[in-house]
Amino acid sequence: MSEEGTGYDAARIEVLEGREAVRKRPGMWVGSTGERGLHQLVFDVVGRAVNQVLARGGGSVAVTLTPDGGVRVTDDGTGGPFEAVGNTLGPDLEALLTGFPAGPEPSGRHIAEVGHLGGGLFVANALSSRLTAEVPSEGGRRIHEYARGVEVTPSATTGSATGSGTTVAFWPDSEIFQTTRCSFAVLAERFRQVAFLNRGLGISLTDERPTGGEARAVSFRFPEGVRDFVAALHAETGAAVHPDVIGFEREDPRMAGAMEVALLWCGSREERMRSFANSRATHQGGTHVEGFRDGVAAAVTAYARAHGLPAAEPDPGADRICRSLTAVVSVKLDRPEYLGATRGLLGNTDVRGCVEEGVREHLGDWFEENPERAAEFVGRIVRGVQQD
């Protein structure tokens, strides 16, 4: 078909770069211009703050929904100069706010993926009607201000400052988003998950927007990590707090990463499973979930056979054995591989065998160290299988 026939030629191609590209096609960078995209914008900014904190081994991130519709994110992380001076370990804050990184985006087991698309500060800046960044500088606070991604005033240093953290405040652009009012509940639930999955991290969320009542505030920090996560999932069923949350952590160079697993037999016939890779929820599961189920099934079957517990068949199957579990499986990998466009299914092939081995060995040891509770749990599972 000729260009004349289609009425379309090279002269009609519009090439957009930088902030113009982001503002022209915001859905490509935050997923939508609705509430989901608005929350992604928040997660992009909070993600940078979280990883600044994790880089120093722990600390706090404070998120505030301000009365004028803005979002303020403050961290006590590693900080650093606004512009890079000399040799640096990565892009400085100015570079992150004013352009896409030249190289690949940071990744690896030490990076928490708070959002799902990874647009970063540049996308947040371009899609905000106003953004300010404050960093410590020569004993004061150096402030930079942008409007829709363009710096509007020369930077200024004011007041005094201690510590090394950064504050980024931004006002989502009403010309882009259908709504600029964030959901407190949606943000709080995601921050709670991230705190569960990263021990040493504290995240708070405060809502100062006028609602006719007092400001809402929540704060999350979980010293037991995913063990606390499983206990919380169990509590959501209305059951009493259960003492037998079983958990372990293990690094495994074969999968270039680490695993953190916790589980609880709750006596119901409904599995409550949550899985994550680098703090990203894997709603479709993946090799880490398959390995977990394989490991639980192997440990339970081996214990039942060794202790003469009857089984309905030689191999009841992982799905039937895990049916009464509440569990969290979290892996942190140097090179996570996802299947599908939504990145909700982990595909690293080495992960399955490593997680299976870790779960089988740790759960087997726990059975031997706690024979009375092990007999109760395994016996309950076997009876459930026999009743099918």
Rank of each mutant, 00 (worst) to 15 (best):
Q386C: 04
E337L: 13
P371D: 08
L345P: 03
R383Q: 11
C354L: 07
C354P: 02
Q386W: 01
E376G: 07
R360Q: 10
V355W: 03
L345S: 06
E361M: 05
R343S: 14
E372R: 11
R360P: 01
L339K: 13
V351P: 03
L339T: 08
V351Q: 03
R352S: 13
H362E: 15
D350H: 10
V355S: 06
V351K: 01
Q386A: 14
D365G: 06
A341W: 11
E361T: 15
G347R: 12
T349S: 12
W366Y: 09
E368A: 15
D350L: 10
G379M: 00
G364W: 02
E372W: 05
F377H: 04
G344N: 14
R352Q: 15
E368S: 15
T342W: 11
R352G: 08
E357V: 10
T342E: 15
G364Y: 05
V359S: 04
V385H: 10
I381Y: 08
W366A: 03
P371Q: 10
A341V: 13
L339M: 12
D334T: 06
V382E: 01
G347D: 15
G353M: 03
L339D: 12
A341D: 14
R360V: 03
W366N: 02
P336Q: 07
G353C: 02
E356I: 03
W366P: 00
N370D: 06
H362V: 07
T349W: 06
G364K: 05
R335W: 10
G379F: 04
E369F: 12
V359F: 04
T342G: 12
G379K: 02
I381W: 09
N348M: 05
R383E: 13
Q386M: 12
F367Y: 09
L339P: 00
E337K: 11
G364H: 03
F377A: 10
D334L: 07
P336C: 10
E356P: 00
G347N: 13
R373D: 05
E356H: 13
V382K: 00
G340Q: 12
H362G: 00
A375C: 03
W366F: 07
L339V: 12
I381N: 05
L363K: 06
G344T: 15
E372D: 14
R360Y: 02
Y338F: 15
G358T: 12
G340W: 08
G358K: 09
R373A: 03
E372T: 12
V359N: 02
E357G: 09
L339W: 11
V359D: 04
E376A: 13
R383P: 00
F377W: 13
R380K: 05
E361L: 11
L363Q: 04
G379L: 05
V378G: 02
V351Y: 01
P371K: 09
